[in-house]
């Protein structure tokens, strides 16, 4: 059995390679490429939304028109909502996510390496991670607030904790997958243990660490909104929450779209980062 061009292309896309399809896919008998189908779906969604709003099938209080939401992007960006402009909300949120990511990486990468290379490290950290991993961040948020108050550190801490497990686990699996030959080669060239970790194990595990980072950013971004529901004065989550309280639905929807757009941009940025940091990945 041979794979269809479609499937081969999908597999190639999964690997992040350009598809080796013979000419344009439309020539291979497909009238619509996957991308145009996706675009069509999106267009259909907006048309349906517009029609529903236009004919007032749902009250505008609950479902404002796309144009109204678009307009909100403009007004919130220029004159703001709940005492801050869109950009200020956005940067407050981004700052939290990236601060959390920074601290999480600082802790999770060494922890992951310890789990991957040492029996003792695995004994110590595995139970902690297994304990943390399944707990939804909303569950430990109250505890963090009791301990550290409702200030900025608590929010960052909650997001950072949520990011720990994915990064540490991916790092550990990357470390465990390091080729024995490479380690042995470095050893017979005279590498010390620290040199092994820094020059062989860490670079080998980088593709895996980046995968963990991608998962962590997703987790962080979802945790963010939860963290900002609690006594924040800025941030996308706070903006959405305040808007919901006053039933300003257009701002709620606008906030949701902002989050989605930012998540998409982060994803694209991460792929770039991957191509730049580990161009060798998958080509060995």
């Amino acid at each position: 059995m041979t794979l269809s061009v479609e499937t081969q292309r999908d597999i190639a896309e999964l690997r992040g390679e350009p598809a080796a399809s013979p000419g344009r896919r439309t020539k291979a008998g497909h009238l619509w490429s996957t991308r145009s189908i996706s675009l069509g779906t999106i267009a259909l969604f907006f048309i349906a939304w517009t029609l529903v709003a236009y004919f007032r099938l749902v009250s505008p209080v609950f479902l404002p028109s796309p144009l109204a939401v678009l307009w909100k992007f403009y007004t919130v960006a220029t004159s703001g909502f709940v005492d801050a402009t869109l950009w200020q909300h956005l940067s407050a949120s981004l700052l939290r996510v990236f601060a959390a990511l920074f601290f999480s990486l600082l802790v999770a990468i060494p922890v992951g390496i310890a789990i991957g290379i040492s029996r003792i490290g695995r004994g110590i950290f595995d139970p902690i991670l297994e304990f943390l991993r399944p707990i939804p961040p909303l569950a430990y948020l109250p505890l963090v607030i009791i301990w550290f108050g409702i200030g900025e550190p608590s929010k960052i801490l909650v997001i950072a904790i949520a990011m720990l497990a994915p990064i540490a686990i991916s790092t550990a699996s990357g470390v465990r997958g390091v080729s024995h030959d490479r380690i042995n080669a470095a050893k017979t060239l005279g590498a010390s243990n620290i040199q092994l970790v820094l020059n062989v194990i860490l670079p080998s595990a980088t593709p895996s660490i980046l995968t963990g980072l991608r998962i962590a950013l997703g987790t962080g971004w979802t945790t963010l909104v939860a963290a900002e529901l609690v006594a924040a004065t800025r941030g996308l989550g706070f903006m959405i929450q305040s808007a919901a309280q006053f039933l300003v639905t257009d701002v709620v929807i606008m906030g949701i779209f902002t989050i989605a757009i930012i998540a998409f941009i982060l994803e694209v940025g991460l792929r770039r980062l991957e191509r730049w940091l580990v161009p060798w990945s998958g080509r060995e």
Binding site: D181, T188, G190, T206
Partner: peptide, 17 residues
Amino acid sequence: PSADRALVFQNDALFPW
């Protein structure tokens, strides 16, 4: 292991980064 006995492998074991 030590650098006075360097080892060459069947599958090069080079560092792709």
